[in-house]
Simulated assay, not measured.
Amino acid sequence: MNTLAGLINFLVYVLQLLIWVIIIQAVLSWLIAFNVVNMRNRFVAAVYDGLDRVLAPILQPIRRRLPDLGGIDVSPLVVILAIVLAQQLLQGLRLDLLAN
């Protein structure tokens, strides 16, 4: 049981890291959109491209299903809410395992 609880803790941790990666990508896209940082900077372009390659398979299916909101992308919010729900379910499962 401790091994399974440890695996659940690891999954919750990985999901939390994914939330932070999504937040960083969203903030970076806002900074680029408002010309605070410049995409001509190779480091910024590389970081943004890397984050986009990691998150595109997660965000694109949700973007296709959401209605057009006039340039506002709420898919990161939807993914974060789904991740938080998954974390809550995993933590509840872990508590059930530890109680038995």
Rank of each mutant, 00 (worst) to 15 (best):
N2M: 11
L93A: 15
I80K: 02
R94V: 07
V79E: 09
L28C: 05
S75V: 14
R42K: 12
R65I: 09
L66S: 08
L59C: 07
I24F: 07
N38T: 04
A26T: 12
I83V: 14
W30F: 05
L59A: 06
M1Y: 04
D52K: 05
S29P: 02
R42N: 08
A26K: 01
I80S: 03
Q87P: 03
R53N: 12
T3H: 08
A45W: 02
V44A: 04
V47G: 05
N38L: 00
G71T: 00
N35T: 07
L55R: 05
V54A: 11
A99T: 15
I24C: 05
L55D: 00
D96N: 15
A5Q: 05
A82C: 12
L18C: 10
Q91F: 11
L85Y: 11
A56Q: 14
D49E: 13
V54S: 06
L98Y: 10
N38F: 04
I58P: 12
I62Y: 04
L4P: 03
L93I: 14
V44L: 07
I80F: 02
F43P: 01
F43I: 13
F43K: 04
F43R: 04
V84E: 09
Q60R: 10
T3N: 09
W30I: 08
G70E: 03
V44N: 03
N100S: 15
A26E: 08
L7R: 05
R42L: 05
A82S: 14
A33L: 09
F10L: 11
V79R: 01
L28F: 04
R63C: 06
L66G: 08
G71H: 01
G6I: 06
L15M: 14
P76Q: 10
A45M: 06
I58A: 12
V12A: 15
N9P: 00
V27D: 00
V44P: 00
L85N: 06
Q91D: 14
V79C: 08
Q60T: 13
I24H: 00
A45K: 08
Q60C: 07
Q16L: 13
L15H: 12
R94D: 10
I24N: 00
D73H: 02
D68F: 05
R42M: 02
R65K: 09
V54Y: 06
L59N: 06
L90I: 07
I83W: 00
L4V: 11
L77V: 15
A26L: 00
A45R: 11
V14E: 13
L81W: 06
A26W: 02
L59H: 07
A46G: 07
N100G: 15
L66I: 09
A46E: 02
L17A: 14
L95P: 02
Q25M: 08
V74K: 07
V84T: 11
L98H: 10
V12L: 09
G71L: 01
D68I: 03
L31V: 05
W30Q: 00
D52T: 11
L15A: 14
G70H: 01
L69R: 06
V47W: 02
R94G: 07
L90Q: 07
N2F: 06
P57A: 11
V37I: 11
L51E: 06
L77S: 10
V84I: 14
M1V: 14
R63G: 03
A82G: 13
